[in-house]
Design a protein around this nucleic acid. Structure first.
Lengths: 162, 162
DNA sequence: TTGATCCTTCCAATGATGGGAAGGTCAAGG
DNA sequence: CCTTGACCTTCCCATCATTGGAAGGATCAA
């Protein structure tokens, strides 16, 4: 099986398969004379494992840990469980942080009339508001990436009190 | 005020202030003869605005949109409200996705005895499990970055059925 | 044989931020 | 006056997972 077919079958892009190989997450495969990588059904299975773990939000580094636990026959299920529960806790904390951000922003929006007039408590709230304790660095990553073309935006002068 | 004091006062690091300037989010400041950037109280105010918006999870690009709405005297509050509510919806969706990941993983973990024996439904579930529909690309970013040193990890051979 | 489609490697970009090097500037104290 | 240390400047690099593309070779079907 060539890399393209393995990608199709596993749901991991060919690009990523090569990347996982390069960082040592998966082993180097057999090559054809021409240098093409050759994959077995088992390789595809392994790739699917990785993909599922990624879908559950495990980082590649974490997956490496899972994989080494897996390969180690003498591993105790305690270790896996701890890893999983740590991850559950981290996911839940981040979910809660995002929800808190949403709540804060929704609160601001609720007081915005949303009409043609320029008065807007959202802007005012951002400018002057007391915000709850800042979220974790990771939670911030969730800002944008949802559509709309960029606008020209240079702050020259903002009102000191909105 | 030098950049260090502006950073201290605004909660935005000097590095990030220079970065925001470089991408055009804030205007170029006055410089001293020696080339030092000079900031006013108003600049600090603007930086704080940006920082608060970042804390609410707005991307820099989005903040640019907010800023241009702000600067435009004729902007309608509708526009700001729409931007804010879009953002609320995105935050909530992502929070829900993370929570769903956590639920799935917790479910797997609940069936793990967590003792010395190697049998572990978490690993088995990852290897064979039917996972819910894959989360959004952005939600995946949440995988790792919480501690623990890297382990050696190369998949040579994983069990086909765990 | 030709053209389409695969594969290879290498390089670059993303977003927001931190780290650091190499060098200039400034204020205070000896 | 000169040194010291704290600050500032620009520039480059790293992160993390992933995508994109270019340049060139391989394979396959017509």
């Amino acid at each position: 099986m060539n890399i393209g077919q393995a990608a199709e079958a596993s749901g991991v892009s060919a690009k990523m398969i090569r990347y996982y190989e390069s960082i040592g997450l998966i082993a180097r495969t057999v090559r054809t004379e021409a240098g093409y990588r050759v994959y077995s059904e088992n390789d595809v299975h392994n790739l699917r494992f990785i993909r599922r773990a990624r879908d559950l939000g495990f980082s590649v580094e974490r997956i490496g840990e899972l994989v080494s636990l897996w390969r180690d026959r003498s591993r105790a299920s305690t270790d896996v469980k701890r890893l999983a529960l740590d991850h559950v806790a981290a996911l839940e904390q981040k979910a809660a942080e995002l929800q808190a951000m949403a709540d804060t922003l929704r609160h601001l929006a609720e007081h915005c009339r949303g009409d043609d007039r320029p008065e807007c408590p959202i802007i005012a709230g951002l400018a002057a508001g007391d915000l709850p304790s800042p979220p974790s660095r990771t939670a911030r990553k969730f800002g944008g990436s949802i559509g709309r073309p960029p606008a020209e935006h240079v702050i020259d002068d903002l009102p000191t009190k909105a």
